[in-house]
Computed example of a mutant assay.
Amino acid sequence: MGRAAAVGLTRERVVDAAIALIDEEGLPGFSVRALARRLNVFPAALYWHAGGRKTDLFAEISGALIAGLMAHDDRAGDWRDTIRTLFKRFRSRIHQHPNAAPLLGPSIRSNGAPNAPWVEIVLAALVQAGFKEEGLIDAFNAVVGALEGFVTIELAADEASEDSEWVKTFDADLEALDADVFPLTKQYLPRMYNQSFVMRWKSGNSAPLDKGYDFLIETLISGLEMQAQRSSRP
């Protein structure tokens, strides 16, 4: 094991192996040493291909997860359908690698050129919607924020055992809420339980929030339509 074994090692191979390791062991079980053992190289060889720090490697992983989401031919005639396709593909991709979802939050950073194809498609869709100049950038940030934010939170919950003390305490605390102080929470809790953010202990991997995600997409599109109309007024 060593530099000789690193012949043929590429950034893509390092990132693919890292994603596979995270899929199997989760982020708590991931380490650069474990990845190096999997690839039969020294850890330094990994940094040569994926930056000099663990955070650089995480950035490469997060970038790889969302690169290539859409190609030019995937653009729809209606910008709304383009946005819908992007959102559905993104969520489907991340649900294939739920253990890596937290990297799309605090560990993500600019990945530049690899993401240019879908960035270009989003910008074109927003131009078609009527955005331009600074308004275009604001709309783009709203789309990307919604895109990554929902799924990251959806898959962020640690899966707990239903008969664990943690879940029993979780349920008991909710049951003990005073209906006079929290009338709406108590009223809607049966519908919110494990089907809404905050009021859940299951991960979106086992209790996906499908309706909520569809609602987000349509709400975002409606909001973009209104903002585009406002920006076009003299």
Rank of each mutant, 00 (worst) to 15 (best):
L209D: 06
S206A: 08
K186W: 03
P106K: 14
V167I: 15
D214Y: 06
F150E: 05
D73Q: 10
T55R: 09
T185K: 00
S107I: 01
D16A: 12
R230N: 12
K168T: 14
R3A: 12
W79Q: 01
A5S: 11
E175M: 10
L155T: 05
L177D: 10
R89A: 03
A101I: 01
T219G: 13
M199H: 12
F215L: 14
T82I: 02
Y188I: 13
A156T: 08
A4C: 09
S203T: 10
L57W: 03
P234M: 15
V7F: 15
M226V: 14
S164I: 05
A5N: 10
E225A: 12
A101W: 06
L35K: 04
G29V: 10
A146P: 10
V41G: 06
P106I: 13
S222P: 02
D158M: 11
N111S: 14
G2A: 01
G204K: 03
S62Q: 07
G204H: 01
A101L: 05
P28R: 07
V144P: 03
R53I: 06
H49T: 05
H95F: 05
R230H: 11
A36L: 07
M199V: 15
L224R: 03
G26P: 01
G29M: 08
F182N: 09
N111I: 13
L155C: 02
P208C: 03
L136F: 10
D214A: 08
A207N: 08
A142W: 13
D138W: 11
G26Q: 00
L174D: 09
V181H: 11
F87A: 11
G112R: 12
A129P: 07
G149D: 08
A124Q: 13
A156D: 12
M192Q: 10
P117N: 05
I221A: 00
K54N: 09
D23P: 02
P102N: 07
G26N: 00
A4K: 15
W201N: 14
K211H: 14
D214G: 12
L174F: 15
A34V: 07
P102D: 02
D23R: 03
K132T: 14
D173G: 14
L155Y: 03
A124D: 15
S206I: 13
A228R: 03
I94E: 04
D180P: 07
P43L: 14
G223M: 07
R11E: 00
N205Q: 14
D23Q: 02
G135A: 08
D81E: 15
F87C: 06
F90P: 04
D173H: 15
A146Y: 10
E148K: 13
V167L: 10
D171W: 13
E154H: 07
L224A: 04
G135M: 02
R200L: 12
F42K: 13
Q128L: 07
P106T: 13
R191I: 06
G77M: 09
T219K: 02
G212F: 07
A67M: 02
D180E: 15
